[in-house]
Write a protein that binds this DNA or RNA. Structure first.
Lengths: 142, 142
DNA sequence: GTTGCAAACGCAAATTATTCGCATTTGCAA
DNA sequence: TTGCAAATGCGAATAATTTGCGTTTGCAAC
């Protein structure tokens, strides 16, 4: 059932269905946090579903270009990926433990309109990330 | 006069004054757009003020750690740096020509408070970037 | 069901931004 | 002027991501 809808999504988006792509998409769909390419690589290894890291990068690029997946460069090193239901996501990240939480609500849609008028840009997207300390890390440090 | 205030700023922030640091700081102060480490490197070369790229990175790290300069990882590759007058900056970047404009106004301060209550995070900072097409690139493509 | 071929994969090497180690130089305080 | 910790320059190391290329695979036509 799951894999069937996965194939349908691929077909609808002109993505050739391969074993690897299904595995990556499934993993992202099942995950409740954004994942890095390497995390996907490791999780698949654990499931005995080895595949090349470069393949994972290529697959993620395809998903991103089709709008199925959002890529976010939150920190200065690794990018994280997550499936997009509807609408884009923002994030809040704990600078102590590195935990990343996705936020569905977007508080700046009206501001974006004003900014378009002000800057004469045609704005197509935006990214918003909050940094701080999560409740667990705050408790630990007390 | 300029260089004097530069030395004063260094002294006030416990930063040892060196020729290289003054050059980098001056360049950032004079620039009306955020610069990458490599852009700084090239601009100084053009002024016959050669210095090592790794030194530039180290100097920028010092400035950032003292709060004099903001480092922003807007795209997935190069970080950009800019001096901070007061308050942080957001950005709008043209996905056609790559031009980056800094925005002084911050539209999400109230939202951040609400988010702190909602997520139990202690939020210390955030990043906001808009992507789109600037007026010049839109004119060109017409 | 075969066949053919473009597209996808795996692997290793390349690329790119950034950092690090270490020998040399420099700013500043005594 | 001297001494020494801190800063610099250089090249090598790192780490994430991309790319080249030979092999494999999905799928459409037969």
């Amino acid at each position: 059932m799951e894999s069937k809808s996965c194939k349908e999504i691929f077909k609808k988006n002109d993505i050739k269905a391969t074993k690897q792509r299904e595995l990556v998409f499934q993993l992202l769909t099942d995950s409740d946090v954004p994942l890095t390419a390497e995390e996907i690589y490791v999780k698949l290894m654990e499931k005995e579903k080895n595949m090349s890291l470069s393949t994972i990068y290529r697959i993620l690029d395809v998903f991103v270009s089709k709008g199925l997946v959002q890529k976010s460069n939150i920190t200065n090193n690794k990018a994280v990926y997550e499936v997009l239901g509807m609408g884009h996501k923002h994030h809040i990240i704990c600078i102590s433990c590195g935990k990343i939480i996705a936020l569905d609500h977007c508080p700046i849609q009206e501001y974006e309109k004003a900014l378009e008028r002000e800057t004469e840009f045609n704005i197509t997207s935006h990214k918003l990330v909050f940094f701080g300390y999560c409740s667990e890390c705050r408790k630990k440090s007390e």
